[in-house]
């Protein structure tokens, strides 16, 4: 059953088309990734899906309700973790839950009953009375995440949830996400970390210039777009090596700055050759979602 679906969404600002014919469908219990370089239209797509802004054309259905017309009812079952923490700095941890819960029309008793589980989820079990300014960046991020669960949502939106977190905090965040998925929640996630998307997402789309340019499970996308093995070569002599061996040993290769990327089916012959080239440094690894992402969206900077 589709929890959230959108058909042919379009949104322009002036002459610039930010979202250009996006169609997607998210099934119950899925972790769905929305990837794309900066300015690809991810945030605008999220805002459209939440019913915060109206599309120029296209339809959105969330829990069977038309968005944005019935977004008030639909958002009753949604939790949102924004890109930047917007906790209430004047309140304690506990007060943040209480105040936020009331926006969903929850009674004080309902919220109070949920608080221990939320504190536990945020790893702030004994910090209920702490002030927000006394929390570390990671704690605030976890609290923002827990706050989004105050209404026990069925669908959770996370906009770059792990940006700026250290590896410990990021792994904790991933565990939290998996716990929610195990409970049958549906998650829609934007991220710039391909490793994160590869680990967590059941399905994902890559958005560029407002259009969907790829869609599928992470493994499928890798298999579809990239040879299974990637070898990165570094050093002064790579040009020489490339001219002599690349065409023969790699299915495909590309030069990026000082690095030569070689894509191959199994890489056995390539590795054998490299063992003899002691002056070259290299990294041999399986193809990843990041390779797909860079292949599809290009390597030039987006600002």
């Amino acid at each position: 059953m589709s929890v959230l679906s959108a058909q042919n969404l379009r949104k322009s600002y002036g002459t610039q088309t930010v979202v250009d014919g996006v169609t997607l469908s998210i099934e119950k219990g899925q972790c769905f990734g929305l990837l794309g370089p900066n300015g690809a239209g991810k945030t605008t797509t999220l805002r459209l899906l939440l019913g915060l802004i109206a599309p120029d054309s296209g339809q959105i259905q969330m829990f069977g309700q038309a968005i944005p017309q019935q977004s008030r009812a639909a958002r009753q079952r949604v939790g949102v973790v924004p890109q930047l923490d917007n906790l209430d700095p004047d309140f304690s941890v506990l007060e943040n839950f209480m105040v936020y819960g009331r926006y969903f029309g929850l009674s004080a008793a309902d919220i109070t009953a949920r608080v221990p589980a939320l504190l536990d989820f945020a790893g702030l079990a004994n910090r209920a009375d702490a002030k927000i300014q006394d929390l570390s960046g990671g704690m605030k991020r976890r609290l923002t995440f827990a706050r989004a669960l105050v209404n026990d949502p069925d669908l959770i939106f996370l906009d770059e949830p792990t940006t700026g977190l250290d590896p410990q905090a990021r792994h904790l965040m991933w565990q939290g996400l998996r716990r929610l998925l195990n409970q049958g929640k549906t998650i829609i996630l934007t991220t710039h970390f391909m490793e994160e998307a590869e680990r967590l997402c059941d399905r994902l789309v890559i958005l560029d210039h407002g259009r969907l340019i790829a869609e599928g499970a992470p493994r499928e996308l890798i298999a579809q777009h990239i040879e299974p093995c990637v070898t990165e070569l570094y050093g002064d002599d790579i040009a020489h090596w490339r001219d002599n061996f690349a065409a023969q040993l790699c299915a495909r290769h590309e030069n990026v700055g000082e690095t030569l990327f070689c894509y191959s089916r199994d890489g056995a012959a390539l590795m054998q050759n490299l063992h003899t080239q002691t002056h070259l440094r290299y990294l041999h690894r399986p193809a990843s979602l990041e390779d797909v992402f860079l292949k599809l969206t290009g390597r030039e900077l987006r600002d």
Partner: peptide, 14 residues
């Protein structure tokens, strides 16, 4: 500055 309204708009409030 605090984006309090933004947080509220993600709930059923308009």
């Amino acid at each position: 500055v605090q984006k309090t309204w933004e947080a509220i708009l993600n709930t059923p409030l308009t």
